[in-house]
Each structure stands twice: as C-alpha cells, then as structure tokens.
Design a protein around this nucleic acid. Structure first.
Lengths: 136, 136
DNA sequence: ATAGATACATACTTTAGGGTAAGTACTTGT
DNA sequence: ACAAGTACTTACCCTAAAGTATGTATCTAT
C-alpha cells in the first residue's frame, strides 16, 4: 500500500470519518475506481488472477493486485493458492464480501433511476466529463 | 471545482467506470470525505449554511460550499436563498437526494455488521490507522 | 534456446482532491 | 467606529492515490 504520513489533517479527518460515519467506513473498503469493478466480477463466482485481468482489460497489474491485497486484508475476498508451478491462484468473495451484495444492488438501482429520471443531465454530465470529445 | 487535465489516463478510466459501473456512478456523487456527512446532516431536514458549518465543526468553509455546489449540480441538494441582507440560504435534499436514503441505510447496516462480526479486525484497523497513538 | 504463461513486486512520476489562509460585501448591534 | 454575523470566493500548497515501466521465478511447449 501507499505510505501515509502519520500527522496530516487529511489522515486525521479520514480517521474521524472512518470512526463516526458508517458510510465512510464502507467507502474506505469499496471506494476507488477499481474495487467496485473487481467486486462485481467476483459476485458471479470465484476467478483466477489472470481471469480478472482479462475481464477488466483497462486495469494495470499493479492496481489489480494492490486492490486484491487490500480487499483480502479487509476480509472481503479470499485468496487461495495451489502450490503448483505455474502458479494457480483463485480469488472469491468472503461472507462479508457476499454481504455487500444488497449494498451494491441498492446503489445500482439508485444509479439507474437517477440516470433515467434526468437523462438530459446524465448526458450533459458525460459531455462535460473531462476528456470527452464534444461531438464525436 | 478543482481543475482536471483533459487528457489523462485517470480521467479516461474514471469516465469509463462512470459510464459502465453504476456503483462508480454513485461513488462519484456521494464519495469523498465530506459528502456522506453532509448528506447525513440533510437527511434530518433542511438546514442553513451556518447550521451545517456548526454541525460539522471539522469541515472548512471551502470544502463545505465546494461540496454543496457539487451536490447541487448533481441535483442531490436544493439551494434556496432568501433575497435579504444578512443572507439566508437553506439547503435540503431533492427527490433524488432522498432516494439515496435506502442506499445509505444499506451501507450503514453492512458497516455495523462488518465491524461487529470481526470486532478484533476493526479495532486493529483503527489501531493501525495512520496518526493514531498506540495506547492513549 | 527461447518465447510464453503464471502471479506477482518495485521504483519512479503524475494528478486530483483535500487543506490553509485570507479576503469580499453588506448590515446590525454597541 | 468597529466588531460580528451572513454566505461565500480565491490563491496557493501538500499528499494520497492512481499510472508507467520494468523486473522476478519457475515451468512448458516449440
């Protein structure tokens, strides 16, 4: 993981929010660009490291293991390695990880609703999203 | 808002995830240290700017309006200003904002569950959290 | 012999977001 | 005359997270 300075306001705030706000607690565990996507992939069953890489082509290996390690440390995914050579490692959701299903589902429902209810806004957002050509 | 380079991988990935992953869509809207806390404050009813400041003492004014503006742009909160002088501005949740209630609730439920189920891990996390004295 | 597949690791750079500090405009109370 | 309260704004700095690039060990197939 990335090193973290012990005495910075940002860390203090993070800690406070982490302790007091359950939503932040969840964010810390499933936040970031890749974690939700990885978790989503694992919702459909256990996968090998290389399978994950293939099903998420845009992710770099660094990001992939980094987040897998983090998810493992947070007891959301389980790593199982067969002691063979060519290595064979599978990742799956733990019980706690499975428990996130309703949370992810609630989020997905809201997202679809929200992007439908104001489809115009949604499209505008996408248009104004940095790095998107205006009329492709 | 903070500037964002138009041609960066991070923005491209963000956009892709934003488009494809509903969870990321939600994260973009309620993620960050402060947004959940602000939203939580507004769940209990509309509040004045100064009230929000008082109920979230640790937040700076910059962060507060910055996120309020963002939330307003995302149509999650509604800003209402009385044209008087001393200004009088109230913020409340829009319908879309209210719609987040089940999402936030699901997250809170999971968080409590998770931090109970492995209370030891939770405490260890807190202990190892950067900036926390080992035995206060 | 060498290329490819497996599952990582590690050094180094960039960027988005969060933080600090100070200022604005206008009015009321003392 | 001046402090205090209202709701912001703006310029500048710092750090954590994301990205780039390359390396490692072992075996199999060609």
């Amino acid at each position: 993981m990335a090193k973290a300075k012990d005495n910075s306001t940002i860390q203090a705030n993070k800690k406070a929010a982490f302790q007091e706000c359950p939503v932040t607690y969840v964010m810390e565990k499933i936040g970031g660009y890749w974690k939700p996507i990885i978790l989503f992939q694992l919702l459909s069953g256990s996968k090998r490291y290389s399978d994950l890489r293939k099903s998420i082509p845009a992710i770099t290996e660094k990001m992939l293991i980094q987040h897998l390690k983090q998810l493992e440390a947070d007891d959301l995914v389980l790593r199982e390695a067969k002691q063979v050579v060519p290595p064979h490692v599978t990742y799956s959701l733990t019980k706690a990880g499975q428990g996130l299903k309703p949370v992810l589902y609630a989020m997905a429902v809201w997202a679809v609703d929200d992007s439908k209810e104001n489809a115009a806004t949604f499209r505008r957002n996408l248009k104004n999203f940095p790095g998107v050509p205006n009329t492709p």
